[in-house]
Design a protein around this nucleic acid. Structure first.
Length: 288
DNA sequence: CTTGGTTCCTGCGTGC
DNA sequence: TGCACGCAGGAACCAA
């Protein structure tokens, strides 16, 4: 399930491969996931690719004298954006495209960009570039947790801000980490692993954390997100990058998805509970 | 304001 | 081997 590291990996791939390419035509096969005027982006070129938390923004240069447009995409659980250049199509594509979960096909002047989504939770919107940051989701989005990695000029999370978010909150700390309005981009996988690294029980009320624990957790989030980006994200499930390749973070994951496996520190078997309806993995011995 | 439940969708795991 | 069933999961939306 794409979270910040996966979306950032897709962003970098798109930045490398589609910036400068022109949209020749767009085939929307599943109408309900697409909002906006499809025809308005035909003839435009990809100018820049930004990420706001887990949201991708593909900025276009104007097709004619009109205002610049952007394609805003949230891939949610199972969305994929895969670029296939004509040359590499036969040799490199790991799966036959399009397939039954391909909902949008962008035909470019060179290659094709496929949007696939098995669960159909994701969405694509075409809006004016100047209005991107007025979107409700982006307006309410919390600060960027990855220092120095913001492609959107968004405010960065600092230890001071993090402390302020945590202090006086009675919700479980894991719920807080995953709340996009509090912090933009952390999801289930990295919330689990960061809490393990900081040795904090995910069920603890946020306000029960000591200053040292807050600092450890802040640093753990930073560490785990950077590590995941380094390994191209986590492909526990359907995630692939902009070229259709899987990530490797799942090989380095500490507790996420490790139910019944030994804790990498003490060997105690990893437990799984539900917090806010989400699978929560932790070591009952190390995490207090 | 916070907290909790429901919804969207389909593959997969479980039980018989 | 096959079928029925229930569950997972990001975020919007609604209710209390």
């Amino acid at each position: 399930m794409p979270e910040l590291p996966e979306v950032e990996t897709i962003r970098r791939g798109l930045e490398e491969h589609i910036v400068g390419r022109m949209i020749v035509s767009v085939d929307v096969r599943l109408k309900k996931i697409f909002e906006g005027d499809v025809e308005s982006i035909v003839g435009a070129k990809f100018k820049s690719i930004r990420r706001f938390g887990k949201v991708l923004v593909l900025d276009l240069s104007a097709a004619g004298g009109s205002a610049n447009l952007s394609i805003v995409i949230h891939v949610k659980m199972t969305g994929q954006l895969i670029y296939v250049s004509q040359v590499s199509r036969v040799a490199r594509v790991p799966q036959e495209l399009p397939h039954k979960f391909t909902h949008v096909i962008f035909k470019l002047d060179q290659g094709l960009l496929f949007y696939n989504d098995m669960r159909q939770f994701g969405w694509i919107k075409v809006i004016q570039t100047s209005k991107v940051e007025d979107l409700k989701f982006l307006k309410e989005l919390g600060p960027e947790p990855l220092v120095g990695q913001s492609s959107s000029g968004r405010a960065t999370l600092t230890l001071e801000k993090f402390s302020a978010i945590i202090r006086n909150k009675s919700v479980k700390i894991k719920i807080l980490l995953m709340d996009q309005k509090k912090i933009g981009g952390v999801g289930n996988i990295y919330a689990n692993d960061a809490l393990f690294m900081a040795k904090i029980d995910p069920s603890r009320p946020a306000k029960s954390l000591t200053n040292d624990e807050i600092k450890n957790l802040f640093e753990a989030i930073e560490h785990v997100l950077k590590l995941a980006i380094k390994h191209g994200g986590s492909s526990e499930n359907t995630y692939v990058n902009a070229l259709g390749e899987k990530g490797k973070y799942q090989e380095y994951s500490l507790v996420y998805g490790k139910l019944g496996k030994p804790c990498p520190i003490c060997g105690t078997l990893i437990k799984r509970i539900a917090i806010g309806g989400r699978g929560t993995f932790f070591c009952p011995h190390c995490q207090k």
